[in-house]
Design a protein around this nucleic acid. Sequence first.
DNA 1: CCAATTCATGAGTATATCTCATGAATATAT
DNA 2: ATATATTCATGAGATATACTCATGAATTGG
Lengths: 298, 298
Amino acid sequence: MLERSHLAIIAAVDARGTLTEAATSLHLSQSALSHAIRKLEHQLGTPLWEKEGRLLRLTQAGEQMLLLAKRLLPQFEHTEQLLKQFARGQRGALRIGMECHPCYQWLLKVITPFLSEWPDVDVDVKQKFQFGGIGALFSYDIDILVTPDPLRQSGLLYNPVFDYEQVLVVNSDHALAGKRYVLPEDLVDETLISYPVERERLDIYSEFLSPAKCVPKEHKEIEATNIMLQMVAAGRGVAALPKWLVEEYAQTMRISGVRMGKQGIAKQIFLGIRRSDESLAYLSGFIELAGRVQSFTK
Amino acid sequence: MLERSHLAIIAAVDARGTLTEAATSLHLSQSALSHAIRKLEHQLGTPLWEKEGRLLRLTQAGEQMLLLAKRLLPQFEHTEQLLKQFARGQRGALRIGMECHPCYQWLLKVITPFLSEWPDVDVDVKQKFQFGGIGALFSYDIDILVTPDPLRQSGLLYNPVFDYEQVLVVNSDHALAGKRYVLPEDLVDETLISYPVERERLDIYSEFLSPAKCVPKEHKEIEATNIMLQMVAAGRGVAALPKWLVEEYAQTMRISGVRMGKQGIAKQIFLGIRRSDESLAYLSGFIELAGRVQSFTK
DNA sequence: CCAATTCATGAGTATATCTCATGAATATAT
DNA sequence: ATATATTCATGAGATATACTCATGAATTGG
């Protein structure tokens, strides 16, 4: 069977002119090459070289093989380079899954430096999962999951990347705007605006309203953070969002954040990965970078 | 070093799904494959597969390698096919050199059946040689030499392919047209038309005129056989050509052939090849075919 | 929960490959 | 012309590689 080593031999002999020099360039003895050639020619049933004086000249069959060598050898080398980069974790595709709507703003701040620090790693962000974020991790649809719920499972690894407080966002002229904190009862006459996810996954219900058995007067769902805040600024409702996000928007919009409950709602964002990917350099690179960005936004 | 066998493995595993089936398809034991994979992954420094349940799934590095395999393996196979054809002598390029101008007509009759009998062999005909026909053979400019002069040399092999008589061609109304044979003296008032080669290589000089110390009144050189005969038919001169060729043209032109000297000039055409090419099937095929065509033209 | 199937592993063997020490043929220099 | 250096070829022995066999551990489907 024709092997890469055979292609290397024919290319080396062509490049160096003599068998002896080709041998040294391949870190082999001249004898080894001679034997290898003899064997190959015997297998193929046709000579690849003919002796001309004390040098060798390619036969037609040899020319064909040289053609193949010149075509294939660079491809072997290229892929070897690529695999070396994979081995060092320098190259790959990082598919990020999001289970935390407002985190998108934060994510962008991580992705920008990541892309320049890992120029050979492609990044993709996905937000919809058929079987939830963890399912997407296990089914290799994504490589890293941004989530506030670290559902510990064997095979997964969670890294906390930042803490924040979830606050109520209201119009700056709203009666609740100046308060130190709001109580569940304060919202029974309000219109609540949230991302379109199940209520069990909204902290304002699970950690604030539901324990007090309160519900808002109305509940609207809006996908885009920006629009959501436009609505709040227009006095059309209230929302629950990370404090840092609200503070950012507050510079250009008439909105304010108010603590929910006396203790406030403390949240934490985790990056989940498959344990088997733990050694991937660009993955740990991403997580490390995410930690740095946290302190920046604080 | 990445080898073809590695590409074969990754392709087989991809095609069959399991390592076990891939092993049998490669005529190897499952253990052999497992060892080979382990070693390769260790060399590369990166896993190519990850276990998923009891099956294997490709990593990103593995995907890259599979891509390479799907690209390169068919090329290996194609060239192997080609080399097999070379080995059987079914494929090649036959470069024919001509040292015999009128033989071109005859050669065409050989080439036509040859092309259909050896569909994978390309044919090329060359007529000009820097260092003569034999030099062209030795320098691999041509593979077969059509010549009337078999200059025996070690390393060359000559095969006679046909005998013919070189005759004088005259206009049918010429005074010499009806004669049994002409003598050198008959040509001293004639215009001789020949191919543009040195006189020593023209038989009409070396074997007919020169021994009798005769020269024609005039000597013109014309390259194309057809034009040469047009001139003869128009009574503008006489020429020396193979008898069979003259007889062919005589059917449509007013020309006749006349023997030169009482014995005539007997000629023989040889096909010369390099001894090292003796085993090339398509070469012996050509020579054999040339012999058959001879009897056809006789 | 058992039987079947998967891949992994260690040890021993077979095979292929390489090196060393030559030889024969050819080219180059004296 | 003859010596000398260089080429590729070859045989034998050493070394490294690859393969098989027997078995184990993990997973899956009935």
